[in-house]
Design a protein around this nucleic acid. Sequence first.
DNA 1: TTGTAAGCGTTATCAC
DNA 2: GTGATAACGCTTACAA
Lengths: 357, 357
Amino acid sequence: MTNSTPPLSSSIADIKALIGREARRVTSYDVARLAGVSQSAVSRCFKPGASVSKATQARVMKAAQELDYIPNAAARSLITRRSNQVALIVSNLATLHFPEVLSELSRQFGQRGMRILLFALPSEGDVDQTLADVWQHQVDGAIVAARLSPAQVAEFERRGVPFVLFNRHLSGHSVNTIVCDQVEAARLIVSRLAAAGHKRFAMIDGPHDSAIAQERTRSVAARLAELGLAAPLLVAGNYDYASGARGMREVVSRLGRAPDAIVCGNDVMAIGCLDTARHEMQLDVPGALSITGFDGVTQAGWLSYNLTTLRQPMQSMAMAASDMLGALMLDKSTGPERRVFSASVVEGATARLGPAF
Amino acid sequence: MTNSTPPLSSSIADIKALIGREARRVTSYDVARLAGVSQSAVSRCFKPGASVSKATQARVMKAAQELDYIPNAAARSLITRRSNQVALIVSNLATLHFPEVLSELSRQFGQRGMRILLFALPSEGDVDQTLADVWQHQVDGAIVAARLSPAQVAEFERRGVPFVLFNRHLSGHSVNTIVCDQVEAARLIVSRLAAAGHKRFAMIDGPHDSAIAQERTRSVAARLAELGLAAPLLVAGNYDYASGARGMREVVSRLGRAPDAIVCGNDVMAIGCLDTARHEMQLDVPGALSITGFDGVTQAGWLSYNLTTLRQPMQSMAMAASDMLGALMLDKSTGPERRVFSASVVEGATARLGPAF
DNA sequence: TTGTAAGCGTTATCAC
DNA sequence: GTGATAACGCTTACAA
């Protein structure tokens, strides 16, 4: 047995030679031998609230430093059943508002001593394959910004892995969720556009498999109906710049002219739409046509665009997500909670808005 | 001993009840019992090239599925000494070209069965603290997009953790690196600007602690000197939009007027600079003034900007980085290698360029 | 406070 | 091909 502690403490050189000969890593046993204490004493020294004498603590830490000892997280994880890793499962790195969300999550979890294990879905369909990988890695929790089926949600629960849905919806099931109120956001912007006299609306839609995108689209239509205005001309988009540009062309081609306002499913499409309107079609925005976005990304604020849009408080949402998951990981008793954030209108220069009421 | 295999195989219900009672996870022992084989047989069934009969394989897989068994990565990692995790150490999520690089890395490593563990440095100084965390997690390798001291490089080597420096330099030490040739890039753009007759240059610098930024700055100055032109007016920037805008104002204020050309340390600053020139100062770009960037980010291509810049082949670089690290993780014998990529001029509409020669 | 010893759930080795 | 059995490196009762 290599791991039995010899009666006497050895020298640094002895131990280093031994490690070299056996091609092993430095373990707590090596530190123990050097410090002349038991292996469990070493372990305790690395555990925050443990009961160790000052003297032992010092001797052990000195020995650890001399040997470059670092505790092995895999071994710890095996016995404690906590990996100190959180999965970030995201279907599309492009639509999550990088780097804002990612760096906030990383900061928050870092403060709790947790690391982010990244799972980017190759395609929206591969969730099951990816989840298998997530289970293997024994993560303590997950932030999910991807479409989950009820069966997949059930599997999280069955395996006891707490998770928070980030800016996604799940109909029926009640799960821990951080979202931004898209219905309210859509109402806000449509109301103010209508108040400024816009009558004929078009909308460039987001991806069909995104619940958030569909909610935005439906809510815009719903608010228009409420206000007694005609249903918007709907054209398909997929959240990228090119689809915004295409959407603009399609709207004009189908209408024979520009509508009063185009509500875009996100900022990037709105920017594509705006560029096409101005530079390709020589349309005056917002003089002849109003264009709005959704999200409030950094680029929307750049002077050339100064987009009128709806800002989602992404940083607060990221912070809330890590708070919520942190609580769940400590104590699984809290019931499912939904924290709903509000978007705010960014009064840029691409739309004529009436007064808020 | 809970883990000894009983002589007879048990029923699913029996085993599930047992697991529930003991509040354990499903282990390979449970699967073994259900399938009526030894635990090692189960282990072999989950190892790709192992020697198992078809019949056993089938029985085991069926049992595993019925119990929802997933091998525990921590336990595997403990014995195999491979975690199948790669650290991505990045000092600034904003300057790494997200999501392009991140999603490419994630795809590439995913194909090799490896996951990315994210280490975003809270501040550029905290590398040592972060590295301690990296060692704990027993990663099999690392992609480093952060400033590393020689001592830190030495620690990677001492601990036998292969790593690849991504778009960073390390003077002196020879380490595995993926970079884009900034010297060549700077020469390219300066030469073509000079060929178009620009004489008085200014440059908006990147952060002082970024080796890449400093290389860009130095190389621009060097090429100007070579061409017998005056040294550029240098103003400080920090890679963000606002600093590009400030830089533009500072240049004009110090020169009393606009220079012939402003070379910006990256695209985002160039965009800030451009917006300020056009919208705040009513300057004609590129008529009265040429502005160029570095990087070739997506946004630089948006119609309102159509920035003249230098595109770094980020996706290829990310692919190369994962290739290189993959090779290192399999066989540590290859010597330090530097793969240098070339930037290409994007002939946008913000600068008058002379012919390439 | 400290040491002993029993796991945690795998893979690896080695007989059979 | 298959099954014992010994690691892997740690945490955690429990005893001293």
